[in-house]
Design a protein around this nucleic acid. Structure first.
Lengths: 237, 237
DNA sequence: AGGAATTTGTGCGTATGTATC
DNA sequence: AGATACATACGCACAAATTCC
């Protein structure tokens, strides 16, 4: 047997795995939801139980599913969104600090010509905001969200952009790449920000990707290194 | 069938996986070694091919094995050490660049009072070096290795410090934490380095930990952001 | 408490697809 | 082109954990 529906298609177990991921991303499968039994799902999908189990193993490896012998398969999405970002953060020089943000503007714009290239279209939503730690402004940030999504509404933005990605866009951030250096502070800097326009400040440029590999976010952050530090952590800290 | 040799033992595929890991650890299976075919190994171990494949999948997930369809299964031990570091690197602004290093000095010293605290003792080995990309000096670096190890010999240092950790000290780096900001370039800076002493430059402070959690390395890197960028990547890039 | 039913985990064997040599 | 070797997929039997009556 082992006949594929269409020759040279993706393996069935990958197809099933991705289909389930889309269900999760679309919100049809939510945290804690229990899937039907493997026997039933396999019958529904028209595949062998062993093949389905490979798809489920894939989801488990991605941290989206918990499998409990004798009980069932349960969706686990919480912790996913923060999992990557919790290791990339802005904190006070002495450590810690309660992070908040204040949105300055939200506009659909032409993409910037400088900086890293991202996405496919010409335009994107640009968000400019101040980042605070314990109420003190420590950084200036510009975030670009690739268009194609409905335009970002200012009221939609939560304190955590990553919850916004998950809740409003249904996107789980799977990977992040930061480029760190020094750059001139842009002239839209506010007096509330410690470093003035044109001055050089520590700078982080970031590309965030979804599970599917598409660039979801491109951001630039300038911060006052006398007030804050940028921390990247990997592996056992 | 599916009879276990001893009741309530570990699953066969785990037993096989761990046995292979011990073979690797003992040096009987070295980097690049090709395993016998799955059919042969399964026969040798007295298990089904499917069960062996589960064991091999486990090794692959641990990064110890590369499986190549149509070719064979190959031991991959290198890349373990680099696995954490490959996501934290200095690269040319346009990307890439061949990294090398030039050691300036190696001395046992009192630990620095400024900067992050690390280790337990009073003294540590201090290494100062220049970092190059494609032969061009782009960064200045100071590395502290906690004492208690035999004193570092200059001749021992390889181009890659992480190979040095592994080969000379037998330590695998399990975790890294970086703090990024801007700092004044120290006065031991050399003219060969793009940014002069006392000037502000992009700066990365790093703590590296062993599997056991002990701090193995503390380093400070100043780099010329017109020549290089520091990249941190996590998850799917 | 206890036993049956349910559900996932382990293991075997086989046939066929596909990449490498 | 043929042989070799790993990848996918099917189906079955039994073990082990959980759930339910």
């Amino acid at each position: 047997m082992a006949k594929l529906a269409t020759p040279s298609a993706l393996p069935r177990y990958i197809q099933i795995s991705e289909r389930l991921i889309r269900e999760i991303a679309a919100g049809r499968l939510v945290e804690g939801a229990r899937l039907p039994t493997e026997k039933d799902m396999a019958a529904d999908f028209g595949i062998a139980v062993g093949t389905l189990r490979k798809a489920l193993a894939d989801l488990e490896a991605k941290g989206l599913l918990e499998r409990i012998q004798g009980s069932g398969n349960y969706i686990r999405t919480s912790g996913q969104v923060e999992s990557v970002y919790s290791f990339f953060r802005l904190e006070r020089v002495q450590g810690g600090g309660l992070p908040t943000a204040e949105v300055l503007s939200v506009e659909r714009r032409q993409k910037p010509s400088d900086g890293l290239s991202f996405g496919t279209g010409e335009s994107a939503d640009r968000i400019r905001r101040l980042r605070l730690l314990d109420g003190d402004v420590v950084a200036l940030e510009e975030i670009w969200l690739d268009a194609g999504q409905p335009a970002v509404q200012r009221a939609d933005l939560s304190e955590s952009l990553y919850l916004y990605f998950k809740d409003a866009l249904g996107v789980v951030i799977a990977g992040v790449e930061d480029r760190i250096g020094v750059a001139n502070v842009p002239d839209w800097a506010d007096v509330r920000f410690g470093v003035g326009p044109g001055q050089r400040a520590a700078f982080v440029e970031r590309l965030s990707r979804s599970e599917a590999g598409a660039v979801v976010e491109y951001s630039r952050t300038w911060f006052d290194e006398t007030k804050a530090r940028y921390v990247a952590r990997m592996g056992k800290g």
